[in-house]
Design a protein around this nucleic acid. Structure first.
Lengths: 211, 211
DNA sequence: GCGTGTGAACCTCTTCACAGCG
DNA sequence: CGCTGTGAAGAGGTTCACACGC
């Protein structure tokens, strides 16, 4: 079943379902319906059923979905039952804040390491993780196996950092930098673009001002 | 022309074009083609032309688009020619990091204020902005006019903060919290979900491991 | 009765291909 | 000739409505 073609939209929604199900589990709710999930995730119940039906028949007709059961299945689909380590490149404001905020409630991720090339910062400990020089990237990755790298470097250093990561075999990168980055085929690069979110919000305000 | 129906996807891409055009402008490039923009933004050139044609005929056939001219038009469409102020709710790790990182290169945004309700933090200055008590939210917003609020509060306090914001008339919110938040109609709420991005990356790694 | 799973209709967005203009 | 602007075709995703099973 590896050759499934599933849209990113569906995967994104699975992530939301998982979050919602974890919440339901701690609340002691044993069974949820597609309507329950749809309301909490802000989508239609038909979409929920379609998303889940892509991967099998997880539901019980007439009642709904078993919370633990569905959560297990979704985590297996996403691969978050054995989540990869997360490393951070750049121990500046954003990098430090990410570590200090932690990844609790995110489905089992945790920060494995953080790197920087400023001698002033190397050796310091942030949220229990010691800042390492970027030179040690390769050995950390090779000993740790698959990781997701979060890029939190200053403007202008993004492409360098990416090249570094790619050369060590890293294939999953989440960038907080604004600059467009090039990666070879097979490497997945995603962006967190606060700037674009602000633009979208600005646009929505402008449209609201002239009805 | 206010009653235009434009998809969010198009608006998001306009934001990317704008960023690309600012870059071209500082590089001294006077004219760009749809192909130029498409390569740097990672989409097809036809899509670029379609996006731009929605709002008028900005291009010169045979040559391309004037950089300054097109940028002005896009900023007028987005509303970023007069960008709203940005306020931050929560002066913890994320909130502080956002202020310290600044909004340079984002098209004119800047942080107007930051709020917290921890007496230990109130009065401190972060990147030149003094932390104010949340009580002062109302007057700051009423004197500042339209603003975008960035939510960077600890887990569990999100809905409270949102209610507070909405009651002061704030209609644009960008949340960094994981919890799903309720807002009344007319208020636009968007999320920055690092957790979901990690899930998507994890999934892509899992799919790559079994070819 | 209730809620899932699913084909079909519907809608939106993307890509193609080309006419038209500088 | 080169590139824009655009109808037409195509692909993808969402909603609808209902049959089936609990």
């Amino acid at each position: 079943m590896p050759g499934k073609k599933v849209s990113e939209k569906t995967i994104r929604r699975l992530s939301h379902y998982a979050r919602c199900l974890r919440r339901a589990r701690v609340d002691g709710i044993p069974i949820v319906t597609s309507k329950h999930l749809s309301e909490r995730c802000g989508i239609s119940s038909a979409a929920v059923r379609k998303d889940l039906a892509v991967f099998g028949e997880f539901g019980k007709q007439g009642s709904g979905y078993g919370v633990s059961d569905l959560l297990e299945n979704i985590e297996r689909i996403l691969g978050t039952c054995a989540p990869p380590g997360v490393i951070v490149i750049g121990a500046g404001n954003i990098g430090s804040a990410l570590l200090e905020s932690g990844l609790d409630g995110t489905g089992g991720y945790s920060y494995s390491a953080i790197f920087d090339n400023d001698p002033e910062i190397i050796g310091k400990t942030i949220a229990g993780v010691t800042v390492q020089p970027v030179d040690e990237l390769r050995e950390v990755i090779s000993e740790h196996g698959d990781v997701i790298a979060i890029l939190a470097v200053p403007p202008g250093e993004g492409q360098n950092a990416v090249n570094n990561l790619v050369s060590t075999g890293c294939i999953s990168i989440l960038s907080f930098t604004l600059e467009p980055l090039d990666v070879p085929d097979g490497v997945v690069l995603r962006y967190v673009e606060v700037s674009t979110e602000l633009d979208i919000l600005t646009h929505s305000m402008k449209c609201r001002d002239l009805p």
